[in-house]
Amino acid sequence: MAGSAAGLFFEDYSVGQQLHHAVPRTVTAGERALYTALYPTRVALYSSDEVARASGLRESPIEDLAAFHIVFGKSVPDVSRNAVANLGYAEGRFHRPVFAGDTLSARSEVIGLKQNSNGKTGIVWVRTEGQNQHGETVIDFCRWVMVRKRDLDAPAPQTVVPDLAGAVAVSDVPVPQGLDFTGFDTAWTGDARRWADYKTGDVIDHVDGVTVEDAEHMMATRLWQNTAKVHFDRSARPDGRRLVYGGHVLSMARALAHDGLANLQMVAAINGGAHANPCFAGDRISAWSEVLDVAETGAPGVGALRLRLVAVKDEGPAGALRDPDGRYRDGVLLDFDYWGLIPV
């Protein structure tokens, strides 16, 4: 079932529902240039064909998060066009790189529903899969979204909350076929730190901050063909403000993380993530990371780091990210747990 022109509302979903998302998209080299224009990204593998070839790939892919945004954007008209907010992620895996010339399509399955106590909105959980033109899965992930009801008198569905893994097991973290970092030259990145230089518990301040501009986040929303009304239509929110797409905050934080994690080349899996508070144009984003785990992958020269990436606005809160009741403190924008691949 696909959405109508008005999009689906909470009462239109049912557990097990299959959503086949419209408009396949062929990726071009323009995606890389636009991504670099939007974010201060400097990942060597995604900046240079020569670095990619030296690392066992045929050429430089598009950024892993750019592929994520494209697949995410495909799902928006059927999943979150009428969303209040995208809330979080789990069980994400980047199965294979996406190259210029690949055509991506997406589909989702509804795996959970829960009406909120106000009776006006509900939470929809979906598992989304992006495939290339060969029918190969390039990425899959779960996410949950708060969606408005069209009819406030519509009966609440039976509550089904999916049991999602707290983290992707390191044995299930995908490593691209042929990836080989044994010849990786840290002169390419300007940072000598490799896998063995990080340990569990390390906290890395990414130093710089970036102020979000209206023009940039609106361009990002259009680039990913994201049709969620709250991002581009000021009448969609009572305060008249356009909500910055959470993926824009994620990509900005990932780009800022180059300072301190310059040799982390690929995002391989998403363990969990939350968009803790809204972001608007004019907010200043800064970020820090905590090393949660270090692991071997079995691929030549390739190690894995499990990282918690936190983005805050206007310096954000000091100390604990949550209050005594477990709610995120004001100023926390993103709390993102992922596995990344780095030369050993």
Rank of each mutant, 00 (worst) to 15 (best):
M1K: 10
A2G: 06
G3Y: 00
S4M: 00
S4I: 00
A5T: 08
L8V: 00
F10I: 05
F10Y: 06
Q17R: 06
H21P: 07
P24V: 12
R25W: 03
R25Q: 10
V27D: 04
R32E: 13
L34C: 07
Y35E: 12
T36A: 15
A37I: 02
L38F: 05
Y39N: 08
P40W: 07
R42W: 00
V43I: 08
A44W: 01
L45D: 01
D49C: 04
E50F: 03
S55D: 04
E59Q: 14
E59G: 03
L65T: 14
A67R: 11
A67Q: 14
A67D: 06
F68K: 11
H69D: 14
H69W: 06
V71R: 06
V71L: 11
F72D: 11
F72M: 13
V79N: 14
S80G: 15
S80H: 06
S80F: 02
N82S: 14
N82F: 06
A83Y: 10
N86P: 05
Y89Q: 15
E91M: 13
R93I: 13
F94T: 12
A106M: 09
R107S: 14
S108W: 11
G112N: 12
K114G: 12
S117A: 15
N118Y: 00
V124A: 03
R127T: 05
T128A: 11
G130E: 09
T137E: 06
F141C: 07
W144N: 04
W144K: 04
R150P: 00
P157E: 11
P157Y: 10
V161A: 07
V161R: 14
P162Y: 03
P162V: 09
A165H: 03
A167F: 09
V170C: 07
V170Y: 03
V175I: 15
Q177E: 15
Q177I: 10
F181T: 11
F184E: 03
T189I: 09
G201E: 06
D205M: 01
V207A: 13
E216N: 12
R222Y: 01
L223F: 10
L223M: 09
T227W: 00
V230K: 04
H231I: 08
D233K: 14
S235N: 11
A236V: 09
V244P: 04
G247P: 02
V249I: 15
V249R: 05
L250K: 10
M252P: 03
A253Q: 09
A253W: 07
R254T: 13
L256D: 04
A257H: 03
H258N: 15
D259T: 15
D259S: 14
G260H: 12
G260V: 13
L261G: 10
L264I: 02
A268W: 01
G272R: 02
G272P: 09
H275S: 02
N277K: 09
F280P: 00
A281W: 02
G282V: 01
I285S: 06
A287C: 11
A287E: 11
V291G: 08
L292N: 07
A295Q: 12
E296N: 14
T297W: 05
A299Y: 14
P300Q: 10
P300C: 07
V302M: 09
A304M: 10
R306C: 08
L307W: 02
L307F: 04
L309C: 07
V310Q: 08
A311N: 09
E315C: 06
G316H: 06
L321K: 04
D325Y: 02
R329Q: 11
D330A: 15
G331S: 09
G331M: 04
L333G: 06
L333P: 04
L334T: 13
L334I: 12
F336C: 03
Y338H: 08
Y338P: 00
